[in-house]
Simulated scan of single mutants.
Amino acid sequence: MLKRSNFLTINKFLAIILLVMPGLVWAGGGSGKDGEDEQFDPSELINHHISDSHVWEITHGIVVHLPVIVYSEEKGLDIFSSANFFGEHEEVKPYNGYVMDHDHITLESGGHVFDISITKNVLFLFIDALILILVFSAVARGYKKNAGKAPKGIQSFFEPIIVFVRDDIARDNIGHKYERFMPFLLTVFFFIWFGNLLGLLPGAANMTGNISVTLTLAVITLIITLFSGRKTYWLHIVDPLGKSMPWAGKLLLYIILWPVEIIGIFTKPFSLMIRLFANITAGHILILSIISLAFIFESLTIGVVGALFATVMNMLELFVAVLQAYVFTLLSALYFGQAVQEHH
């Protein structure tokens, strides 16, 4: 029976092979229109992986066309498969008055379209949520079944992590009012962690490397912080100097301090958004760039060395996956703690 560490190593090695498969096909070169070999374009490979799409390419030749849901004043609501945009040889073509250019859908007449399609990232959001529901439903059943006993199975794996989030993140940074924030903190921690891990699978979506996803998570943190703010939290923003000097003396200072305090409310979630987006996207770009070197230089030596470096980086990304989930949860708890802190 394989040890867990050996299984992970084999799994990541296979993941890299599958990830490289599209590059092997492109680098191998089909014939172009002029009979010349196609040149390998690393930017095409990288952008294809990190960007969102109306098509989910599991691996080269295995494609799932996702549903397109668009609304416009001219045509109303339309729902159809993205397969309609592709011809017999996978060339992009117009369909029913719509055109798709680099996965951006518009009307042939030039009109604006409101696109609410189930794209690759949206699909993996659903997959991530489904995994959370299945895993923690099993953990909840384990708690009921093993009440008063030592945890077993999946419960024994996740319980130490849940306790860590509760004691070392929530309680330490929020204080005695931490319990009401626990559902969000646990959800965001595991949602980001599982999403990061899904993004490392071959053919998967770069979900947590999409700025729309990180923006939404950051906005939720901002809303919870603002609605949880106590009187002392708002007084600190309105009157940060307190009673240290009379109002007449500090009015001039407040011309500077008030804009800083107000901007500070929004820079905190902004930093959450950018940090998660940048770290996850950078990791994917680095791994794909290392893999691309073999096809750029067409060298077996560089290919072997690049594969080794990519394997190491992929292993490092396993750590980054949980680290970024921890950082986002920790900073969210810190902001909640500032909002509910008692007056000193």
Rank of each mutant, 00 (worst) to 15 (best):
G87W: 07
F13V: 12
Y326A: 00
L77A: 01
I237W: 02
K231I: 10
A205L: 04
L241K: 00
T281S: 07
E261L: 11
I10W: 09
K3L: 15
N210C: 01
H102W: 10
S43Y: 05
F194W: 08
A170V: 03
H284C: 15
E57D: 09
L197S: 04
E317L: 15
L252T: 08
N196A: 08
V113W: 00
H65T: 13
I17V: 14
Y254S: 01
M315I: 06
K3I: 12
I192S: 14
I302P: 14
F184S: 10
V139M: 03
I131S: 03
I224D: 05
D101T: 07
V63M: 14
N206P: 00
I10C: 02
L14Q: 10
F85H: 06
D41R: 03
S117Q: 05
E342N: 11
F270M: 10
S43K: 07
I192G: 01
T221H: 07
K177Q: 11
L272R: 03
V238I: 05
K120R: 14
I237A: 09
L276F: 01
D101R: 12
V238G: 03
R230K: 15
K243T: 13
I296P: 04
F164Y: 15
V122H: 10
H65I: 12
F13R: 12
S72R: 00
S332D: 11
N206Q: 03
F126K: 08
D103C: 01
I46M: 01
A310P: 14
L286E: 14
I237V: 04
L107H: 00
S299R: 03
S72L: 01
S137F: 09
G148N: 05
I256P: 02
I161T: 12
G209N: 01
H54P: 05
R141C: 13
A83M: 05
F136T: 07
R141Q: 11
L125N: 13
P246N: 06
E261R: 13
A218Q: 03
L293C: 08
L334A: 10
H176M: 09
D168N: 15
V219A: 11
P67V: 04
L286A: 15
I263L: 06
G32K: 02
F136M: 09
R141N: 13
L123R: 12
G35L: 02
G61A: 08
E261D: 14
K120L: 15
